[in-house]
Design a protein around this nucleic acid. Structure first.
Lengths: 215, 215
DNA sequence: CATTCATCCATGTGATCACAAACACAGCCT
DNA sequence: AGGCTGTGTTTGTGATCACATGGATGAATG
């Protein structure tokens, strides 16, 4: 062990590696199809192959990484059918999460969402794909946390994870500079307590971006 | 790319251990709160700690096992809120899966479902909890396979996995000897091509058993 | 010049080891 | 007698090693 970082010893090595890789994949830092090696991961994080392997296994189990028949790992290259299916899953789960969050959404939350949404708009105007994905997911997660449904939120995050590399490739080639219209619809529906409107807005927001790749 | 799933014979050690533990947990062979040790698992399957650890990590990532702060692993003891949430997830996912399977459900599938359903009824009459859970899940999986939605099915199976030990504890104390009424409703709706009826029947079947524990 | 084959290196897998933390149990002190 | 403490054992963690396999590179041949 090189430097255990005495202050942060509470998190195990494999947890640290797992978290780092996970956010990297979810935010689209890694392109689809890019290969990873256990020794390379270990070298980068200053650990041996053991924690690297456990992190990779965990990410493979969550669908964030693809394990070839020979054991090589890479980020997945999703087929169009798979992308459509994951988009449908997002719609299914996130509409429910938003609906459950609605009765608990007070002004403080809406203010917070509006603040995050400014970050989204800024990333869009800068053509910053990773920044866009990160702040967009933060917007959704902040809303869904109010649903008090941790298992459901975990499933939604697993879907985000699987879509991460693909979203990066998608939004990277995207030309639009328009601010997020559906996010404003979501906020408006939250303010009005309009549940059907909220469900529709979330469904549109989740499906719009991904549909144009698969279509 | 989705792995085509041929009859994979070259199963690595950790894969074999993982599969065995997974079905055990999903079928309710292990009681909630039961502790497991890496060396014990390794001893049982004739492998070292390494594959045992990877299997356990993977199952923890899927929510099938609970990892205490000190690293000890055990099957989870679910709170009532968590059980209700997982039941809601089952309803959400499985209603959608059944709906997608409906247009593809031909006579051969319905015959197969009826055959499986006889096994369910037999397990119920014998008070065989594990047999009931296994054949019940086989009924649902057989139907959902027709939906051609592997990611969605995988998520549903993950929920089954999380509920496995609890379902065992639930059905173990259940007194009913009635054959599965909702399964017959599902089959009837499939025959009639009645989508609303199918959605309702699946939702009832999924929620009925679990609601009486949490309620 | 293209194709094929052999060799070498990189990579994943599983076993083993050293170590630290947690648990269990016994003995001790009050 | 009851709570506390110290010790021995169990357990998880991470590193290292030996081995088999797969992919890549380069040479030899048609």
């Amino acid at each position: 062990m090189v430097s255990p970082r005495p202050s942060e010893q509470s998190t195990s090595a494999h947890e640290r590696v797992y978290r780092a890789l996970r956010t990297r994949i979810m935010h689209g830092d890694i392109a689809p199809g890019q290969a990873l090696t256990l020794r390379g991961i270990g070298r980068e994080f200053g650990v041996s192959m053991t924690p690297a392997r456990e992190s990779v296994r965990r990410l493979v189990a969550e669908g964030a990484l693809f394990l070839s028949s020979s054991g090589r790992v890479s980020t997945p290259e999703l087929s169009n059918e798979r992308i459509e299916e994951l988009a449908a899953l997002r719609a299914l789960l996130e509409v429910e999460l938003a609906s459950r969050a609605l009765p608990r959404a007070h002004m403080a939350l809406i203010d917070r969402l509006q603040s995050i949404n400014m970050g989204v708009a800024e990333a869009v105007s800068k053509r910053d794909a990773v920044g866009y994905i990160r702040s967009n997911l933060e917007f959704h997660r902040t809303l869904y946390l109010r649903a008090q449904a941790p298992a459901m939120l975990a499933m939604a995050e697993t879907v985000w994870l699987q879509l991460g590399p693909t979203m990066r490739a998608l939004y990277g080639r995207l030309r639009r500079t328009e601010p997020p219209r559906n996010h404003k619809l979501i906020i408006a529906a939250l303010k009005a307590g309009d549940e059907p409107g909220l469900r529709l807005a979330v469904r549109s927001d989740v499906t719009q971006g991904l549909r144009m790749l698969a279509g």
